[in-house]
Design a binder for these strands. Structure first.
Length: 296
DNA sequence: AATGGTCAAGTCAGC
DNA sequence: GCTGACTTGACCATT
C-alpha cells in the first residue's frame, strides 16, 4: 500500500497550483506560473520521497488555462525537459500519480459544448502525464456527472460518450463513486460497459449509505483494475465532526483510520488521504499502516 | 500594506 | 428562479 495526499503541501511553503485571473493572461505570465509550479512540484515530490509518501495527486492547476482558447503556448514542447526530469524521479522512487479534474469536467452533459470543453480538459491532463512519461498506472479520475432527472439515460449517455473519447484519455480515465448521485454500484454498471476502472471513495460510499460493506466494496472495485492499470486507487476522508454531511475533516481520526485498516485487510490498493491538513495526516496514516504491517 | 470580494468552466439541493 | 455548496487558495482591485 502506498499512501499520499492531494495537490498541496501545507508545510513546504510553495504552491504547485498557482494561477491567475483569465483577464490578466499573457504568455509571460503563463510561462512564469508554469515554471514556478514545476519548481514547487519538484520540491513537494522530493519531500514526499523523503517521508515515504509514495502516492500524490498533481494539481489540475499545474498548467493554468491549458485547455482554454487563450493558451496558445506549446507548453509540452517548451517544458519537455522539465517534465521528463520530474517523470524520471517519480518512476525512480516508485511513486504513483493521480489527477482529478474538477466538477466542470463531465462527459455526460446534455449540453454538447460542455462535453467538448471537458474533452479538451481531459486531453490536457493526459498530455501532462504523457509528457512526464508516466506508466498507465497514473490515472485521471472523474465522477460520472449529472443525473438530469433520468439516471438511466444519463448513464447511457456517459457510456456512449466514453467510447468516443481519444485513446490517450481512455487509457488513463477512471471513474469515482460520488456522495449523492452515482454509487459504487452505478460505477460498476458503467465499468461493465466501458471497461473504465472504478476508483473507490470510502467516504462517499458511507455518505450514500450503500449496503456493501467496505470490505465487499473494495473487492468489487479492485476487480475493475487490470495489471496495466495498477492496483486499485482509494480515496479516504472522514466527516468533519458537527458539520454538514459530506464536509471533510480537519485532520485524521486515528481510531477511525485503524478501523478502516482492519476492514480493508486483504485488499491491495494505494490510498489518497483527502484531509485538510494534507501531508500531516498522511504521515500519521503511514505510521499507522506500517504498524499494522500493511507497508513493507 | 492590508483587506476581502471574486475567480473559466457544471450540476444539484434548498429556498 | 436564484443562490450556495462542492473545495480552496490566492489573485488583485481597492483602500
Amino acid at each position: 500500500m502506498r499512501i499520499g495526499y492531494p495537490c498541496l503541501n501545507r508545510g513546504i511553503g510553495c504552491s504547485a497550483g498557482r494561477t491567475f485571473r483569465l483577464a490578466s493572461y499573457s504568455e509571460s505570465r503563463f510561462i512564469e506560473s508554469v515554471e514556478k509550479n514545476l519548481d514547487c512540484l519538484q520540491q513537494i515530490l522530493e519531500y514526499n520521497v523523503r517521508e515515504g509518501l509514495l502516492f500524490f495527486r498533481i494539481s489540475s492547476d499545474t498548467i493554468p488555462f491549458a485547455s482554454h482558447r487563450v493558451c496558445d503556448v506549446d507548453w509540452t514542447g517548451r517544458f519537455s525537459a522539465r517534465f521528463q526530469r520530474i517523470g524520471d524521479s517519480i518512476k525512480e522512487s516508485g511513486m504513483r500519480i493521480s489527477m482529478h479534474p474538477d466538477q466542470f469536467t463531465l462527459i455526460n452533459s446534455l449540453r454538447p459544448e460542455v462535453n467538448t470543453r471537458s474533452h479538451a480538459e481531459l486531453i490536457y491532463h493526459a498530455m501532462l502525464l504523457d509528457a512526464m512519461g508516466l506508466d498507465l498506472d497514473a490515472k485521471i479520475q472523474i465522477h460520472v456527472g449529472g443525473v438530469y432527472n433520468d439516471k438511466m439515460r444519463s448513464i447511457q449517455r456517459f457510456v456512449r460518450n466514453y467510447r468516443e473519447l481519444a485513446p490517450e484519455i481512455k487509457k488513463r480515465l477512471v471513474i469515482e463513486n460520488d456522495e449523492r448521485m452515482y454509487s459504487l454500484g452505478d460505477c460498476m454498471y458503467i465499468h461493465e460497459r466501458t471497461g473504465a476502472p472504478v476508483l473507490f471513495d470510502v467516504f462517499h460510499h458511507r455518505c450514500m449509505q450503500s449496503e456493501e460493506t467496505t470490505q465487499k466494496a473494495l473487492h468489487l472495485a479492485s476487480g475493475t483494475w487490470t495489471e496495466a492499470d495498477g492496483v486499485l486507487m482509494v480515496d479516504y476522508s472522514s466527516q468533519k465532526p458537527g458539520e454538514k454531511r459530506g464536509r471533510h475533516a480537519e485532520s485524521i481520526e486515528p481510531d477511525e483510520f485503524t478501523q478502516f485498516l482492519n476492514e480493508s485487510a486483504g485488499v491491495d490498493f494505494d490510498l489518497m488521504l483527502e484531509i485538510k491538513d494534507k501531508e500531516k495526516s498522511a504521515r500519521v496514516a503511514l505510521d499507522l499502516a506500517q504498524s499494522h504491517g500493511r507497508i513493507l
